[in-house]
Design a protein around this nucleic acid. Structure first.
Length: 438
DNA sequence: TCTGGGGTCCTAGGACCC
DNA sequence: TCTGGGGTCCTAGGACCC
């Protein structure tokens, strides 16, 4: 048996101690923190459940709400059928108040606040922390916590979070990230699972293959055709065949299933892209409605880029047409810019291709980001918003090379300035960018 | 399940260069 | 002028994660 390549080898004998911390239905816990009456009640936190506008989905359902069949990402309308709101049930004789629950709209800023308090505790507990999302992080405890103390350490960590912040977490400890992640999930909520180095294979073997990171519904279905249904099956499969079918990811998931994962815990770097998207309440072919939404999103994306001191070189849109076809279009600029008007005009220009299409959803995205020096705090998203902007000079590109590329860009635009007056306007914008560079 | 929003990474084909 | 091979960049789509 040769084992699958693609994983970083480490010195044998030096087993790392990695923890994965995962808050239990975090948004719901936050809501209960400021509204204790919600404790023990079925609670759904979602977006767009009020007849506001747009479609909505469930962000988090408490365990009590899950009893009624409400799940994460479920359409809010479906969730309401399974679990009506108490306020409605009280007014309606056909509904039973006992069989109803509470709904609260997502309040990300508040959750971010709570999250920071938790993250502070995590950073005190470990030298290296990778924050994965608002409610999840990996800790490298190697050299700080020996295996025979892993369980008590994790227990203290949970208790600290509970006592100091007031929300519950599940913790998994294992010799690598992928196993730690599965471990934290294994006994949710309020779980604590330690998988020591020698036990990883046997711990993973009976689990359904979907629990392996990077095995989603599509891959799981394809694996089932190969009679691979558990992590143990996957671990025993032929890596070459997996690579043929799934590419590099085939080798990755094979390794994960075998308890092999050489990834180091590293702090999260700067973002690669920033985007904003939104759905229409009903699909629409209305040109002005589409343009108006794209304008709004472009403005919001520009604002966020500005707050994070990010320059962008590629501007893209996303257009979702019924039934659910995702189309993306993108255009790169000759150099990085921070220019809301250009962002808007390029986005609108890209949208022209979908002029006659009925759409369900649109999005705007910037990528190929570069960041100005200074003020790291705001890069994380919670620094002070008004950083001094003396940075423009610092990242002026090397003029010779840049000017050449700009010339090419203009020439390109000239020749392809096909039909629309919009194209010409974009060109003009392009030239204002040029002067910004000098 | 008839599908919200914000991300990451990989792949494949085409353009272009040497 | 029927045609190699390597490399890079760009765009579009897809799978996946939270």
């Amino acid at each position: 048996m040769s084992d699958g390549a693609g994983l970083v080898e480490r010195d044998a004998g030096e087993e790392r101690v990695i923890a994965h911390v995962d808050m239990d239905c975090f948004y719901a816990s936050c809501e209960r923190l400021r509204e204790p009456a919600l404790r023990g009640e079925p609670l759904v936190v979602g977006m767009g459940y009020e007849p506001d506008q747009g479609r909505g989905a469930v962000a988090t359902a408490s365990y009590e709400a899950r009893e009624f069949g409400v799940e994460s990402a479920m359409a809010i309308t479906t969730a309401l059928e399974k679990l009506p709101r108490k306020v409605e049930a009280a007014k309606d004789d056909d509904l039973d108040v006992e069989e109803a629950g509470f709904y609260r709209p997502v309040d990300l800023e508040y959750y971010q606040d709570i999250s920071e308090q938790v993250k502070d505790i995590l950073h005190d507990a470990a030298d290296t922390v990778r924050e994965v999302s608002i409610d999840e992080a990996y800790l490298d405890l190697t050299g700080r916590v020996p295996w025979d103390e892993a369980e008590s350490f994790a227990g203290r960590l949970k208790a600290d979070i509970e006592d100091e912040v007031g929300v519950a977490a599940s913790v998994g400890v294992a010799p690598n990230m992928s196993a730690a992640k599965i471990a934290s999930d294994h006994d949710k909520p309020d779980g604590l699972v330690v998988v020591e180095p020698g036990e990883v294979r046997s711990f993973l073997a009976p689990l359904p293959v979907e629990e392996v990171h990077h095995v989603g519904p599509v891959t799981a279905r394809e694996l089932a055709e190969l009679d691979i249904e558990t992590a143990g099956d996957l671990a025993a499969a032929d890596p070459e065949e997996l690579e043929d079918r799934f590419g590099e990811r085939g080798l990755t998931i094979h390794g994960f299933a075998r308890g092999e994962d050489g990834r180091e815990v590293t702090p999260k770097g700067l973002p690669k892209s920033l985007s904003k998207e939104s759905s229409f309440a009903e699909t629409t072919a209305d040109v002005e409605a589409k343009r108006e939404r794209v304008r709004l999103l472009a403005e919001q994306v520009a604002e966020r880029a500005d707050r994070k001191d990010a320059l962008y070189q590629t501007i893209g849109i996303k257009v979702v047409t019924p039934p659910y076809d995702v189309n993306t279009r993108a255009r790169s600029l000759p150099g990085p810019v921070e220019d809301p008007d250009l962002l808007e005009s390029v986005a609108l220009d890209l949208l022209e291709e979908f002029h006659d299409d009925r759409v369900r959803k649109v999005g705007v995205r910037v990528s190929k980001l570069s960041f100005t020096e200074g003020d790291q705090a705001s890069l994380d998203g919670w620094g002070d918003a008004d950083a001094p902007t003396e940075t423009a000079d610092n990242d002026a590109p090397e003029t010779a090379a840049e000017t050449m590329r700009l010339d090419e860009f203009e020439a390109d635009g000239e020749t392809s300035a096909s039909d629309e007056t919009d194209a010409g306007r974009t060109q003009l914008r392009g030239q204002t960018v040029l002067t910004d560079f000098r």
